[in-house]
Write a protein that binds this DNA or RNA. Structure first.
Lengths: 336, 336
DNA sequence: CTGAAAGCGCTTACAG
DNA sequence: CTGAAAGCGCTTACAG
């Protein structure tokens, strides 16, 4: 299998490498005949340019990396996939990097700015904490997705996220409207105004507004995975048999919680109503079907790419965009 | 943010770029002091080499691409992730490419051999059909995973897969042992001896062995997605009310089928026993818990990387490895 | 509209 | 143990 280079194509077509490069990049300053001839030769040879060589020329336009933290989360994957769709008409090339939930996405990003000369970054499922400081010296456009950076050290980065506070409030209000009074919240550690924090605030706001008491012991910390949620839910419900609803900060957590309730012989929604966040596909096929706050995945993806594009191509300032989700109440929440 | 090159490091350390390169690649022929000095400077500058430049030198050792077809399938993602784990001590660099289920993984692979000078390929979730011909001229080591290439046009490629036929047979025998007699099979289109074909054979073998009749109308074609499985299962069970078991060729299909049964007011496993294939995490947390043929994910990943490594580093011939899965019977199958 | 030449940041014979 | 130099395959001023 011969691997053709631009040089081979040039020789075969009887033109210079410069001309082949021009054809390759659809530059206008090539005569129609030359262009066609070169394209014919490239097609015959199944020519594919060497991405490394192209990447080596820095002026080569932009390269953006989408960094997804947590491969197992279907919501984050679908978000990344949507972004790739939306990115088709951007000039920049996109790469996606899935990194482990334990890994440091900021260090990884820093590395990419060097090793791949990345000139734009989108963070998916990132957590803003002290670690983000390593990007202090990095002056390229960035957008954070699923989390607002407005009041964080990363404020000069743009962000696109759901209105976590309002949506959590709406979810808990729906539980209250349906008669739930002992409501537990399953969420993560939170920090500043990250999304777990905003969701916790929203939940408390709803409780306060309707004069429903909140017991701090009913905030249950969990990682956003099935096994962890299941494992923490079991002892929790054993020691809190009177809980009649659970607001979970992720659909995976909600599914783990429901399974734990079933393990304890409780009915959902008969004994406990459960609602999640994200709107992952499997939640529409479980029994009971999972009630959830559906994230506006397509819109988050569209806006993220748009904002980044504005920053990269027009030098627009960082914006902070908040979108509404949709409350989808189905079988896992009791009827009014 | 200054981006340091190897040249900068060389100047700062007072050595040549050659020497820096040597340190970078852990070559033995550098004096200890020089090495330490260079490493100190690199650390201070947070130096990260330019991957494009490195990749441009073809002798740079090996580059293997893992091509995963179908991003939405959690089983395939976890397989790819395991491979990355296993690949740590291989000399080659690994890249993962998730491609759309509609896309052509063979063309994509061909492209990668050129654009990224990929010298080894692992296909995950690939389908072997006519399209594979585009790789005819490509003489680099390849391994197919989750499918055997033994009797296909890709026989010179290695393959590592579960013993689909035996496992499907065991699954259906388990259904028969538990008293099921009207068994439907939910699978894909099949071709030659690909895994749907082997699973179908295994299922029929079990039926034959126990003299249970198989109605060809009870082979239900579906894509391996939740919505599709759910959509085809509804009309099927309406028109076949006497079915008492379903063997599904993927856990996602099984979950869609179970939901359809619930929609029709049927109980699982009371009315219909259901068993899937793959062993995805969510199946352990649904109600009922999903019975399945658990793929030996870690072992498939380990062997795939090992076989590829043997081919790339030692010129070993292509091997075809078949592994056993584990039948995990839980709540979705009725008791004996 | 076209081409010769420099250069992107690295690696690797080759020579010392 | 160390360095000067060539070259990987491309792009892009610059000159015509």
């Amino acid at each position: 299998m011969k691997i053709y280079t631009i040089r081979d194509i040039a020789d075969l077509a009887g033109v210079s490498v410069t001309t082949v490069s021009r054809v390759l990049n659809n530059r206008p300053d090539v005569s129609k005949e030359t262009q066609e001839k070169v394209q014919r030769v490239m097609a015959e040879c199944h020519f594919v340019g060497n991405a490394n060589a192209r990447g080596l020329k820095q002026a080569d336009g932009d390269m953006v990396a989408i960094i997804i933290r947590g491969r197992q989360n279907p919501f984050l994957s679908s978000l990344a996939e949507e972004m790739l769709q939306q990115a088709y008409d951007m000039k920049a090339a996109f790469i996606t990097e899935y990194i482990d939930e334990q890994a440091d996405e900021f260090r990884h990003a820093l590395m990419l700015t060097h090793s791949r000369r990345v000139t734009g970054l989108i963070f998916v499922g990132s957590r803003i904490d002290e670690r983000c400081r390593v990007l202090d010296g990095v002056n390229i456009p960035m957008v954070f997705t699923t989390v607002s950076t407005q009041d964080t050290p990363m404020a000069r980065a743009a962000s696109v996220s759901m209105d976590d506070r309002a949506m959590a409030c709406a979810a808990v209000e729906a539980l209250i409207a349906r008669g739930c009074r002992k409501i537990a919240v399953f969420g993560g550690d939170y920090l500043g105004t990250d999304s777990p924090a905003l969701r916790a605030m929203g939940a408390k706001e709803a409780l306060l507004r309707h004069s429903v008491a909140f017991d701090v012991n009913c905030y249950v910390k969990t990682r956003f995975t099935l096994p962890d949620a299941h494992a923490v839910a079991l002892p929790f419900f054993r020691s809190h048999p009177d809980i009649d609803a659970a607001f979970c900060m992720s659909d995976l957590v909600a599914l783990g919680v429901i399974r734990a309730l079933h393990d304890l012989g409780k009915s959902v929604p008969g004994d406990v109503s459960v609602i999640g966040v994200d709107g992952i596909e499997v939640g529409r096929y479980t029994t009971p079907r999972l009630s959830t706050i559906e994230q506006p995945v397509t819109e988050i993806a569209r806006q993220s790419v748009q904002v980044l594009s504005d920053m990269m191509e027009n030098g627009a300032p960082a914006r902070h965009i908040t979108l509404q989700g949709a409350l989808r109440l189905t079988e896992s929440v009791r009827a009014e």
